[in-house]
């Protein structure tokens, strides 16, 4: 469990658009250990998807541009690999599940062919029959009966499509699964089913996962560690207990407070006031300072460094919060 699988160091990604440069990722560092699940939490536009696509080098360029950093996997920097070497990693060692199952499958190919494609490209020695057997096996794992193998995506419901996409992602037993909000587009009941299924398959195959979500509930249920991302930077990271019971960054605090509680009698939700700063025009200091209740003059001078609060628990805030101070 303790072997490091992937390490992202100071990853910086920008989108150069006509309206200016979008600073999507501004030096993100994180690591995932073998078999571990890391939850990546942040609001829309924080850079979650850019990070996942950046790891797999799927950022469309132009306008996207990786400005700096490293993605170390298996002793190699993925950002330095040739295209052919990268093709061997994608879908094989590292695969990705996308947000919207409705648009993520090719509408003119049968689901069987779409799964078979990833198996045969990474196992060129297999015969057609062997590939088909594997497709049937993986379909069974995601709970789809084999007689639907020759159907087209439009004959599947949203939840079933997401199962197919997960089957594609797991078909080659990847070491790491990047799940980009895999349940956001689904009904709540289907969400639970799909999450359970991902969890079980992950355990069965020993796959590590980065689960991208804006739902702290989902993350609490599935993850070992959590990283909170804000305006293209990790602002707090630690294990589940650290984040939920001893949150240190005011942004994490705000996120936790904005969850409706079933036990306390609260009349109104408590959202974080304001909006995330414009990523084309980030403030020089802590990007959260304009929305922060605890901000001081020092906060807008420079971006704070990540500080280790307790072993393995880091926060990008100049303050340390004790139990009583959090309100």
């Amino acid at each position: 469990m303790d072997k490091e699988l992937i390490r992202v160091e100071d990853l910086e990604i920008r989108y150069e658009t006509d309206d200016g440069i979008v600073y999507a990722l501004n030096g993100v560092s994180l690591h995932v250990e073998e078999g571990e699940t890391l939850g990546l939490v942040g609001e829309t536009g924080a850079g979650k998807t850019t990070l996942a696509k950046g790891i797999l080098r799927l950022i469309p360029s132009p306008p996207g541009k990786v400005v700096g950093g490293k993605v170390m996997y298996d002793g190699k920097d993925l950002l330095q690999l040739s295209d052919t070497e990268m093709h061997k990693i994608r879908g094989n060692a590292i695969s990705m599940v996308f947000q919207d199952p409705m648009t993520s499958l090719n509408p003119v190919m049968t689901v069987g062919d779409q799964i078979a494609e990833v198996i045969s490209v990474h196992n060129p020695g297999l015969s057609k029959e062997e590939v088909r057997e594997r497709v049937i096996a993986i379909l069974a794992k995601v709970g789809i009966s084999s007689d639907r193998i020759d159907e087209f995506p439009h004959q599947f419901s949203g939840g079933m499509k997401q199962r197919v996409i997960i089957a594609i992602a797991l078909a080659c037993n990847p070491k790491l699964l990047l799940a980009d909000e895999p349940t956001t587009a689904l009904d709540v009941t289907i969400q639970a089913q799909v999450l359970d299924m991902i969890q079980n398959l992950k355990k069965e195959l020993g796959t590590a996962m980065i689960l991208i979500s804006h739902d702290l509930g989902v993350v609490a249920q599935t993850c070992d560690r959590v990283a909170i991302i804000y305006a293209g930077r990790i602002v707090e990271t630690g294990n589940l207990h650290d984040i939920y019971h001893n949150p240190q960054h005011p942004y994490t605090l705000g996120l936790l407070e904005s969850i409706p509680s079933l036990t306390k009698n609260v009349k109104r939700l408590n959202p974080i006031k304001g909006l995330m700063p414009d990523p084309t025009d980030l403030p020089p200091g802590c990007p959260f300072a304009p929305r922060c209740n605890h901000a001081t003059a020092k906060c807008s001078e420079a971006v704070p460094e990540l500080r280790e609060i307790e072993p393995g628990h880091f926060s990008r805030c100049i303050r340390t919060f004790s139990e009583g101070e959090r309100k």
């Binding site: 696509k53 797999l56 799927l58 295209d83 052919t84 990268m86 093709h87 061997k88 990693i89 994608r90 879908g91 094989n92 695969s95 990705m96 996308f98 919207d100 648009t103 993520s104 499958l105 090719n106 509408p107 190919m109 494609e117 990833v118 490209v121 990474h122 996409i165 594609i168 992602a169």
Partner: peptide, 22 residues
């Protein structure tokens, strides 16, 4: 620009195959 092209890329297919098949 469709999502399924990203899916195809994430499978590790070559650009040639993606262009032709997808």
């Amino acid at each position: 620009r469709q999502d399924y092209i990203s899916t195809a890329r994430s499978k590790g297919l070559s650009e040639k195959v993606i262009t032709k098949r997808h």
